[in-house]
Design a binder for these strands. Structure first.
Lengths: 144, 144
DNA sequence: GTAGCTGCAAAGTGTTTGCAGCTGA
DNA sequence: TCAGCTGCAAACACTTTGCAGCTAC
């Protein structure tokens, strides 16, 4: 069984646990997100899925993504753009955003994940997760 | 001369350098942002400024913020919400966001600022800036 | 005097919602 | 069967734009 199949199977279990019905649309939306390393927006996902499910409506994509996010199955990525971007919830990782073409790339930074936060932050409240967002220009856009 | 006055004076110089006209509206919008530690949205700024300048229009606030951001005088903060949030460009700092009440707090983390990024990131392209975004629940919302 | 800024109104874009019919468990 | 999901269309919220008059330089 390949990685995608495994993730889709886990998805089925997660739905059952969360009391969510496992519909065709939900399965396809999730699979597409697993296959998409580029953090697509709801609109982008809808475009891609229409080829496979022509009747799929954009508002279902929005609703489904919101549902998944509420159950922690996917994560809404923080960006400066107004459009939300989504990704499947995985191991802790960070984001590189190209200011020119707006692509988002993941990267790992284990030593950072283990560095304790400053004392002042602990006084603020409870931290659930944290990630680094780095802005710059990717090699493509630099013309390299 | 207090800190606010100083910052406003520097603002005047920054405008001249950038070739921007120093209008009443621009000055007030900038001063309000300097006075606002809570990273207000365009809408919020407009609300606050209306008391002082009743004729100020919301689209001028949007346009002005975009102009300031284009010239690096202010920064648009990355959040998961759809609304953009702004702050005056200052020393490097990071953000704590309360998932419950959506307030944004700044914090310093100098040791993190100096930690070099992983090698893989250097291959991606040029990094201009980076910051940590931490999500959690603030003490207020925890009921503490 | 003139380039550029502002206010107004209208349009755009991304997202959410109400409803009626459909469907997975 | 029936709670809950989907598609449709309409509403919404935030942001941008075209235009004519106004203002800082």
């Amino acid at each position: 069984m390949d990685a995608l199949q495994k993730q889709v199977q886990q998805f089925g279990e997660a739905c059952r646990e969360a009391g969510l019905k496992l519909t065709h649309q939900r399965l396809e939306i999730f699979s597409e997100l697993v296959r998409s390393p580029d953090h697509p927006s709801a609109e982008a996902l809808h475009q891609r899925l229409r080829k496979k499910i022509p009747t799929l409506s954009l508002d279902t994509v929005y609703r489904t993504l919101a549902t998944f996010a509420r159950h922690g199955m996917i994560t809404k990525v923080e960006t400066v753009e107004s459009q939300g971007r989504f990704e499947v919830t995985l191991a802790p990782h960070h984001h590189l955003i190209c200011s020119r073409c707006n692509t988002i790339m993941d990267f790992q930074w284990p030593s950072m994940d283990e560095t304790p936060l400053p004392e002042t932050v602990k006084e603020w409240g409870r931290i659930d997760n944290r990630s680094v967002v780095a802005y710059g220009i990717c090699k493509n856009c630099l013309g390299g």
